[in-house]
Design a protein around this nucleic acid. Structure first.
Lengths: 223, 223
DNA sequence: TAGATTGTTAATCGATTAACAATC
DNA sequence: TAGATTGTTAATCGATTAACAATC
């Protein structure tokens, strides 16, 4: 009975949104079936990897034909839990927070930012995009009354930990953290950090590596 | 001679910025030596992993004492190639692009956005933060004259591929792509995608898994 | 039918983790 | 000295990839 199921591999989960985007584009072009081979080619992946990923969604294909585009779309959406929209609050309406509040793509992910909170009094009562900005003092009431489970944190790094603890105290179970700060929270709170530094680190390290390789090569033989 | 060196493991690279942030904070508090144990504890990692990561930077520690805080900071900065600032251009000054242009943290990563380009004529000549917004027609000249190697792309998904090809044509060697689109480019162009969908996918999948586990548990035995 | 594509099982690869000797 | 911490070498774990039979 101790299945100890850890869900779908995280690398697979990270690729699912790319499949989904592509599939929706193909669907809009009227395509009904699609092969893993084509998806792989389009995304620069190996067909076998795409098939493995797809198998995680529980969808089965037909040899020689491929997979149902609509079937795959539904399966991925369901696998990611993007089928029913989840309400979330945003904390911190600075430059980044504003951009997030105005971002229209969240609907595709089943995410809806229903309210924003900011420490600056002059913002209270205003809106960012279609999202009302409220006084943080109302946060607890809001979270409890609206059964909000997810908080998007876009406050300065030095306030992130405190804000996180606060919203968790009010009942939030998952945090999407845009502040450059590693949060320490109870085990059972899901935290996902989206960090520009981390992302850029991979880019710069690769650029550096390329430069060194080029140097090495030109230093030895030219071919 | 065929070392076939692939550089530092990507998971390690992704953790380096967290170490760096923490180390800088400790340095500012006057700490001179730090142990992998403490770093690990602070970030919720295992000491052995921190030691392995640190060893990738080439820094050596002293048994019982730990590592030099300043030495580690320098080594990480150097490993990531964040030691000398790189000029980059930003393409696309929408909500997200504006937030990126105004972001003050890039200095810490050795990244400097020196110019922005946007298709909207009314933005030309204006500034976003301290970054001038220019006519995309000038992009080629700008990139070549200023030897720009990195482009940050924050245009709508449907234009991302075309913009990427364009800047690469002008000499850009690395692209930080914020558009929800997988770019197909020559092998030797470094591309890093920072995608809200991907990030959120991991969060939602984990939330979904937790809910299912909770359901299972309450369905069977309570313990 | 022949050939492309699927799904499964096994092999490989790389990162994490464990064990432990070296050392300040 | 004793004990904490390092660095290395080996074991484990998990994801990717390969091989191949099944099938439309």
């Amino acid at each position: 009975m101790s299945t100890d199921y850890n869900g779908i591999p995280i690398p697979t989960i990270k690729r699912l949104p790319s499949y989904l985007r592509l599939l929706k584009a193909y669907r809009d072009e009227g395509m009904e079936m699609i092969s893993a081979t084509l998806l792989a080619d389009e995304l620069g992946l190996k067909p076998i990897q795409v098939r493995k990923d797809i198998s995680c969604t529980g969808i089965e294909g037909k040899p020689k034909v491929g997979f149902s585009v609509n079937g795959l779309i539904d399966a991925i959406v369901e696998t990611l839990g993007w089928d029913n929209a989840t309400d979330a609050i945003l904390v911190g309406v600075g430059h980044l927070g504003s951009a997030l509040a105005r971002y229209e793509g969240f609907g595709n992910y089943g995410l809806k930012i229903v309210a924003a909170f900011d420490a600056e009094e002059k913002k209270w009562g205003k809106k960012v995009g279609s999202v009302p900005i409220l006084n943080p003092a109302e946060m607890g009431t809001y979270i409890r009354d609206n059964h909000v489970n997810i908080a998007v944190i876009a406050v300065p790094a030095e306030h992130a930990q405190a804000v996180a603890e606060q919203v968790v105290g009010y009942g939030v179970r998952a945090i999407w953290n845009f502040a450059p700060k590693d949060l320490k929270l109870e085990e059972d709170v899901v935290v996902q950090r989206t960090d520009l530094a981390t992302s850029f680190a991979v880019l710069s390290a690769q650029v550096k590596l390329r430069l060194e390789q080029k140097k090495h090569r030109s230093g030895s033989v030219t071919w």
